[in-house]
Amino acid sequence: MDHPMPSAGRTITLPTLDYGDVTLTCPQWCTGHADHRPDTYRADIHHRGPDVVLAFHGAEIIAAGLSQSPFATIVTPGLGGPTVGASVSPPDRSLTPVDLYSLAVALDSYADQLRDLAEQLHALLVGGAR
């Protein structure tokens, strides 16, 4: 599915609690800052891309999207920061490309387990076993 994205080089100015008005350039994938509040600290400003969502029966199971906090001072992996990452929820962590591939492998394995469970359930229902 294609998502409309703003053009690269779009400059915005956001009010912050600690630095006043902060002007920054949004990356091409950033969907905007409509949810920005003026009582936000500069370090908490973040760019977000559109989410890739797995939903089932109207419930969101997992969502992931590009994320970057250009003024963050956090250097703890998994908590986001000035380097672009993939924000995944759950588990509410920022993932590297390697981590994201590992998550995809885990989801593939889980899908296999669900198919096995579906076959077991089908056999129980068809066979009348309890």
Rank of each mutant, 00 (worst) to 15 (best):
residue 2 D to P: 01
residue 2 D to T: 12
residue 6 P to H: 12
residue 6 P to V: 04
residue 6 P to G: 14
residue 7 S to D: 12
residue 11 T to Q: 09
residue 11 T to E: 13
residue 11 T to K: 09
residue 11 T to G: 04
residue 14 L to K: 00
residue 17 L to S: 06
residue 18 D to S: 06
residue 19 Y to A: 14
residue 22 V to K: 03
residue 24 L to Y: 02
residue 27 P to E: 01
residue 30 C to Q: 03
residue 31 T to Q: 11
residue 32 G to Y: 02
residue 32 G to R: 04
residue 37 R to M: 03
residue 39 D to C: 06
residue 40 T to V: 04
residue 40 T to R: 04
residue 41 Y to K: 05
residue 42 R to E: 13
residue 44 D to C: 03
residue 45 I to C: 01
residue 45 I to D: 00
residue 45 I to V: 12
residue 45 I to K: 00
residue 49 G to Q: 01
residue 50 P to V: 11
residue 51 D to C: 10
residue 51 D to W: 04
residue 51 D to G: 00
residue 54 L to A: 11
residue 54 L to D: 04
residue 58 G to M: 06
residue 58 G to S: 08
residue 59 A to Q: 14
residue 59 A to V: 13
residue 60 E to W: 05
residue 61 I to Y: 03
residue 61 I to T: 09
residue 61 I to M: 13
residue 63 A to I: 09
residue 63 A to W: 07
residue 64 A to N: 09
residue 64 A to T: 06
residue 64 A to C: 12
residue 65 G to Y: 04
residue 67 S to R: 02
residue 67 S to I: 02
residue 69 S to L: 07
residue 69 S to D: 06
residue 69 S to A: 15
residue 71 F to Y: 15
residue 72 A to Y: 00
residue 72 A to L: 02
residue 74 I to M: 06
residue 75 V to Y: 10
residue 75 V to H: 13
residue 77 P to W: 02
residue 77 P to G: 09
residue 78 G to K: 06
residue 79 L to C: 13
residue 80 G to H: 08
residue 80 G to M: 07
residue 81 G to T: 08
residue 82 P to R: 13
residue 83 T to S: 09
residue 84 V to P: 02
residue 85 G to F: 00
residue 85 G to P: 00
residue 86 A to Q: 07
residue 88 V to R: 01
residue 89 S to Q: 14
residue 90 P to A: 01
residue 90 P to G: 04
residue 91 P to H: 08
residue 92 D to N: 15
residue 93 R to Y: 05
residue 95 L to D: 11
residue 95 L to K: 06
residue 96 T to E: 03
residue 96 T to W: 00
residue 99 D to A: 13
residue 101 Y to E: 12
residue 103 L to F: 05
residue 103 L to W: 04
residue 105 V to L: 12
residue 106 A to S: 10
residue 107 L to Y: 07
residue 108 D to Y: 08
residue 109 S to T: 15
residue 111 A to H: 13
residue 115 R to T: 14
residue 116 D to A: 08
residue 117 L to A: 13
residue 120 Q to H: 14
residue 120 Q to K: 12
residue 122 H to V: 12
residue 122 H to Y: 15
residue 123 A to W: 14
residue 123 A to F: 15
residue 126 V to R: 15
residue 126 V to L: 14
residue 127 G to V: 08
residue 127 G to N: 14
residue 128 G to E: 02
residue 128 G to H: 01
